[in-house]
């Protein structure tokens, strides 16, 4: 078959056909993958919640509510975990803009009196090998069972109680800041029973 001439009509026609076919095909793939993608994101959320709270038997994602960050227009998502109708803990999806590059997102689990149960790292763009160590057990362990009321979430360099990661003071600061925002929001805007 001979090559099509580059006339105005041929160009418009061939590009129209190609974009039309491409968008139809993509629409189909989008419909086809919509459910698996939603399921994968939900699973990720449930996994993050379940590691930061004790055993529960409700659906925290369905019971999620928003609470305003004190002194800010933003609000955080709080996922309450109930065991037989009694609040055992709440997972707060919190962030800090003080990271080395972009926001650091954490899921912080609190028992009703405000003590930290556990923390998991959700999203960040910190330096691989330095800031990424905030997800390590050795760093996170120091926050467990601590109540921010008498455990200052600032790093030691800033007069707080947090042992900063070597070479990643900024990330450690952001981690503490995100945990503090979560605590403040949970104490003031969260449900405690």
């Amino acid at each position: 078959m001979a090559k099509k001439e580059s006339t105005f009509f041929n160009m418009v026609f061939s590009l129209s056909v190609i974009t039309l076919v491409a968008s139809a095909a993509l629409g189909y793939v989008y419909e086809f993958t919509k459910e698996p993608i939603a399921a994968a994101q939900l699973a990720k959320k449930v996994r993050a919640i379940s590691v930061v709270v004790p055993e529960y038997n409700n659906n925290p994602v369905e019971d999620m509510y928003l609470a305003a960050i004190p002194g800010s227009n933003d609000s955080l998502e709080i996922y309450p975990a109930y065991q037989n109708g009694e609040l055992v803990a709440a997972a707060v999806r919190s962030f800090s803009p003080k990271g080395y590059s972009g926001n650091v997102w954490l899921m912080v689990g609190f028992i009703p009196d405000g003590s930290i149960f556990d923390i998991s790292v959700l999203e960040h763009k910190e330096t691989p090998g330095l800031g990424t160590k905030m997800a390590d057990e050795s760093f996170k362990a120091q926050f467990r069972n601590k109540n921010p009321q008498n455990f200052n979430l600032k790093v030691k360099k800033d007069g707080g109680d947090v042992d900063a990661l070597t070479g990643a003071t900024i990330t450690s600061r952001a981690f503490g800041d995100a945990a503090y925002t979560a605590w403040k929001t949970f104490m003031e805007g969260g449900k405690h029973d």
Partner: peptide, 22 residues
């Protein structure tokens, strides 16, 4: 043979971008 020479690059890019999105 369906694509006129002058618009081949945009046509290729649409095709490639579609597969990348997939």
């Amino acid at each position: 043979s369906f694509i006129p020479d002058k618009v081949r690059i945009p046509a290729f890019i649409v095709i490639i971008a579609s597969f990348v999105t997939v």
